[in-house]
């Protein structure tokens, strides 16, 4: 079994780190995983995305033209990735940064006010974890517990005090079902 996930947004929204945490969680579950960032002459505020592939067998391509699940953190990412989600797949939209609905009806769409929820929790940098909670609730290739374990083991030491609020962010996001 293989699944491909794209997480896309502005640089600084925690897009790449969210993908890395998924990768750690998958690795700790004994799965094969690849994480590949978009890279180029990038800058803060520019677009950033990463592709994560999780599989039980040796992974071929680390990139997927039509990923099963996409998390979009802003409008340019929605415009770019909505047409690419595999039919029947999941699109998780950060409604705080996007002022339109999805156009497709052959995919499952989840709307989450990611930034608003993160700010309610006291730290807007938690937006990525809210969105990951929403992703896993609708595409459960990993459990929230897998993610919590990954956070505990891979969040830098200076951020360990934020573990509990990261868990809360995941769970708030997971309340949203397509």
């Amino acid at each position: 079994m293989q699944t491909e996930i794209v997480i896309s947004g502005f640089g600084g929204q925690g897009v790449l780190f969210a993908g890395q945490l998924l990768s750690y969680a998958a690795m700790d579950r004994g799965k094969n995983v690849t994480w590949i960032p978009s890279y180029g002459p990038e800058m803060r505020g520019g677009t950033a995305n990463c592709t994560v592939v999780v599989s039980d067998e040796e992974i071929g391509s680390p990139l997927a033209r039509n990923p099963e699940a996409v998390v979009v953190m802003n409008l340019p990412s929605l415009d770019k990735y909505e047409p690419l989600v595999k039919p029947g797949g999941v699109l998780v939209i950060n409604q705080s940064m996007v002022d339109r609905k999805a156009k497709r009806n052959d995919i499952r769409v989840v709307y989450i006010k990611g930034n608003d929820i993160a700010e309610e929790l006291g730290n807007k940098r938690l937006t990525n974890m809210v969105m990951i909670g929403g992703l896993l609730a609708n595409h459960p290739f990993l459990t929230l517990e897998d993610m919590e374990k990954a956070l505990k083991e891979h969040l830098p030491a200076k951020h360990q005090k934020l573990l509990e609020v990261n868990y809360q962010a995941l769970r708030r996001g997971a309340e949203y079902k397509a």
Partner: peptide, 10 residues
Amino acid sequence: DGSLGQMMEP
């Protein structure tokens, strides 16, 4: 190449 260099994998 650039993709293998930038890619993360266990």
